[in-house]
Amino acid sequence: MPRLQVTRCSKEENSKPAASRSKSSPPSSGGSPPSSLAFPSNNLSPDGNRSLSSSGLQRTSLSGGVQNATLRCDLPSPAVAVRNLVEQAQHAHLCTLMSAMHHRRAGYPFGTVVEFAADGAGHPLFSLSPLAIHTRNIREDARCSLVLQLPGWTGLANARVTIFGDVYPLPSDMQEAAREIFHQKHASHAGDPAKKSSRWLSGNAQYFRMHHLRDIYFVGGFGTVQWVDAGEYAAATPDAIVLHGPTAVLRVLNERFAGALRGLFGARGGGADDAVVISIDKLGADVRVRRAGQHAVERLVFDQEVVTLEDAIDIMQRLTAHVEA
């Protein structure tokens, strides 16, 4: 029989939240953009497609510190969780510093919502109009922060991350590669690869990259706060299950197992009005459960690692086989 473990990681647990700061010092800052902005070697496959695609980790109300929560709930490490989150998120809040040259309120933070993708090393890429305020800000001061959360945000108990770094325009010979990365990510989320040839072709937008990652602040829910060293983030690899059409993976799982999941989590007591898989990683799935108008995120732990959609379907079938929808 497969091992079934449904773990509720909730803010009602009575352990104190803990925050830890990596002892590693942040990368040294530079006053000017590097002369070369070469993508990492694992960024593009031989046919020119990006070797990494998209997904992430979302969980709520984890108490006792991120390390304890990671062990208790069979979660990815914080660095991997952030890589997964970056791959899953479709939009982000880009925060720049208002430029004295172009704007009033010089020196104040300026936030705006942008589409983004990430290269093979997890560095965010942006398609920005030269007329946009944030683009003009970046050209005057490269320092930025990027705030990301997964689609389906339901409150402060959901995972989010803030990435601090320096953003520079990519050289002309790398603009096409960046556009292809955008196509791959957003066509995958839209579920329509045919749109790859038509998006981001018009206008005079230019591609930028957060080249220097200075620091990363990860919040996995109430009580799960972790500074992730940029070097640890760069060394981490997203789970394979999140790299190829993660939106389609979640859609298939929810279409096939909605009733079974509702029965599985409802059996814990109090019933369940709804149960939706909101993220998946190689160790398990996070399921948003609604009971009497209240939402909580609960962990469904797998009895083996999953790599592909087929693996996920197989294990979900086994874990819910005894449940009546």
Rank of each mutant, 00 (worst) to 15 (best):
H103R: 08
A178R: 03
D192H: 11
N137P: 14
L85S: 03
L85F: 02
L94S: 00
V161Y: 01
V113M: 04
Q184G: 12
G165C: 00
S188Y: 07
R143A: 14
M174G: 08
F182H: 01
L150V: 13
V80M: 05
P76M: 01
A187N: 10
L97I: 11
G120P: 01
L94E: 01
I138S: 11
V114D: 01
A159E: 07
H91S: 14
R160D: 07
F126I: 00
L94I: 02
G155F: 04
F164H: 10
E140F: 11
K195A: 06
L148E: 04
A157Q: 10
K195N: 05
E140A: 11
D192K: 12
S99Y: 06
V80A: 09
H91C: 13
N137H: 12
K196P: 06
D141M: 04
A142N: 06
H103A: 09
H134E: 06
A194D: 13
H183F: 09
D119H: 05
P130S: 07
R136P: 13
A81C: 07
Q184K: 13
A79W: 00
E140W: 11
I163D: 01
T135R: 05
F116Y: 14
A79M: 02
R105I: 13
A157F: 05
G107M: 03
A178N: 02
V114W: 02
S198P: 06
N84M: 03
R179I: 07
G107P: 09
L148W: 04
A187P: 08
G152D: 00
G120H: 02
S198G: 10
F116T: 03
V82N: 10
L156E: 08
L148H: 06
A79K: 02
S129P: 08
H91R: 15
L146C: 01
H93T: 15
Q149M: 13
C95V: 15
A79D: 07
A142E: 05
L131K: 12
S99T: 02
P109M: 03
P78I: 03
H183Y: 10
G191V: 04
P169N: 00
E115P: 11
F116C: 04
F110P: 12
H186I: 00
E176L: 07
I163M: 10
H91Y: 14
S188M: 02
D173S: 08
S172Q: 13
P171A: 08
N137W: 12
P109G: 03
T96P: 13
M101L: 14
S99D: 07
F110C: 08
S99E: 03
P193A: 01
E176S: 12
H93A: 15
S129L: 01
H91W: 15
R105V: 15
Q184S: 11
T154G: 14
A142I: 04
P78V: 09
H123F: 12
R104N: 15
T112N: 14
T96E: 07
I181A: 10
S99H: 06
S129Q: 08
Q88W: 10
L75G: 04
R199G: 12
R139Y: 05
E115I: 09
Q149N: 15
A117Q: 02
K195H: 05
R199Q: 14
